Amino acid sequence: MQTHAPAPAILVLEDGRTFHGDAYGAEGETFGEAVFNTGMTGYQETLTDPSYHRQVVVMTAPHIGNTGVNDEDPESSRIWVAGYVVRDPARVPSSWRSRRSLDDELKAQGVVGISGVDTRALTRHLRERGAMRVGISSTEPDPFVLLERVRGSAEMSGAELAGEVSTGEAYVVPARGDKRLTVAALDLGIKAMTPHRMSERGIEVHVLPATATIDDVRAVGADGLFFSNGPGDPAATTDQVELLQAALADDIPYFGICFGNQLFGRALGFGTYKLKYGHRGINQPVLDRTTGKVEVTAHNHGFAVDAPLDAPTETAYGVATVSHVCLNDDVVEGLELRAADGELKAFSVQYHPEAAAGPHDAAYLFDRFVELVERSA
């Protein structure tokens, strides 16, 4: 628990809108893209998701930190958010799994945050005006001075960030039980639960750096290729698209999620674009057109694929179609690539089927990948 009153802090958006509150986590100053997350739970997984690199996350759930921080749920080795915005932080964590408070963890990792903010008003503003640059400071009291620094900070459009969050060295997640397959997983900001989900299905996962080449994929004897989630603008990420195109030309089965969906789209010749405020949270409804089922899914993306919803597209690698659609706004949420005879060659989804922190509706996609790879072996 805090033994003294927190320092005052301010949050300034690049359009000049200002919010006042208290310092939460580390004191200091930070900048990034302001986005909001609609999840009621899973704040620890959100904080440690590399896809949030250079983003200041606004939590729409009003009470954050009530289960503290444990050592089992992180999705990577560190907190990646550039800043954190909450309305009502818990004073005391209440969970038998908790090892420390969220406030203490933010301080320990140097993450600047702000509490006591009207996050409902801030979220409504971002919904109307769109995601934008933001600054949080507990050291600069003048919002006009902070605003100038916000407007001088980096934008998300055009940013190539996968290399900043990827592993420096390849590593292997062994299959649990009998090994069935070998998959090369390109780490563009991978969450720890993703190779775990494949390992549960008898896959030996070779996690490769974002700088990996098609020769690296071949060298591990990969039966299939996986591209992970990750931050940044897919239009600025070119080497990985070339790797994927080489894999598709070799008929290597492919599965991509989130950023991997966007890069799959670009490999097939589609464009990508920045969403007004993106999809972030664990409560997004998506229609799987291949089954007709509606899934509640976990999202974290600010870009999307520009592909025709109701017509197949002939590509250099086969026939591409949109397989999944967001029911809130018709954004493309998945792609399929099939051969001339109708056989599935590759697929991707824009959301997170690894279910950390849930929901579990999309776990079947890992089974679909196993079936695809086994059929192609």
Rank of each mutant, 00 (worst) to 15 (best):
P285E: 10
P50D: 02
F264M: 01
V134S: 04
S138L: 11
H352W: 02
F303Q: 05
A121L: 10
R375H: 15
V241L: 04
L372V: 11
A34C: 10
H360D: 15
R133S: 14
G32F: 06
V145N: 08
D71F: 07
V305E: 00
R368C: 07
D251P: 10
V332D: 13
A185R: 12
D49I: 03
W96D: 12
G116T: 10
E354V: 09
M59W: 05
Y277D: 13
E295G: 07
E242R: 11
T123L: 03
E204A: 02
R54F: 00
P143K: 12
V294K: 12
P174D: 15
D103A: 08
Y277Q: 12
Q240F: 02
I282A: 14
I190A: 05
H352T: 02
A61N: 14
T194D: 15
R280Y: 02
I190Y: 12
P308D: 11
Y24P: 09
A162W: 04
P93C: 05
H4T: 15
Q55I: 04
L337H: 08
A192D: 10
L126D: 03
E140Q: 10
T48S: 12
E200F: 06
A247Q: 00
A298T: 15
N261E: 02
A355P: 10
P174G: 13
E200I: 04
T119I: 08
Q240C: 02
T321V: 12
G302Q: 12
V332T: 14
T194H: 13
T238K: 08
T3K: 15
V217L: 11
T38M: 05
Q240G: 01
E14D: 15
G221Q: 12
R127W: 10
R91K: 10
Y273H: 00
A363R: 09
R91E: 08
F19G: 13
M193E: 08
R129M: 10
T123G: 03
P89D: 01
S77L: 14
T67N: 07
G232Y: 06
A210P: 05
T315E: 14
N283E: 09
L344M: 10
R368F: 06
T297S: 11
A159Y: 04
H206C: 08
G224E: 06
A212Q: 07
P50R: 13
V57Q: 02
A9H: 11
A7Y: 08
V296W: 07
H360T: 06
H301Y: 07
V286N: 12
L372Y: 04
V92Y: 11
G278C: 04
G42W: 00
T211G: 06
H352D: 12
G292P: 07
H360N: 07
T67V: 09
G16H: 04
A362W: 03
Q240L: 03
S153R: 04
R201C: 09
L344E: 13
M198V: 04
F347I: 01
F255Q: 06
S77R: 08
A311R: 12
Y52M: 00
G265H: 01
P141W: 04
G39M: 03
H299A: 13
W96F: 13
T67A: 10
E14L: 05
L244A: 06
G116Q: 07
S166M: 09
I79R: 06
V331C: 05
A131N: 05
L287S: 15
K107Q: 00
E160R: 00
H352N: 01
E33M: 02
S166K: 10
D250R: 15
D306G: 08
T313H: 11
F264Q: 02
H299D: 11
T41F: 02
Q2N: 11
V86K: 00
P62C: 13
V111F: 00
A219Y: 05
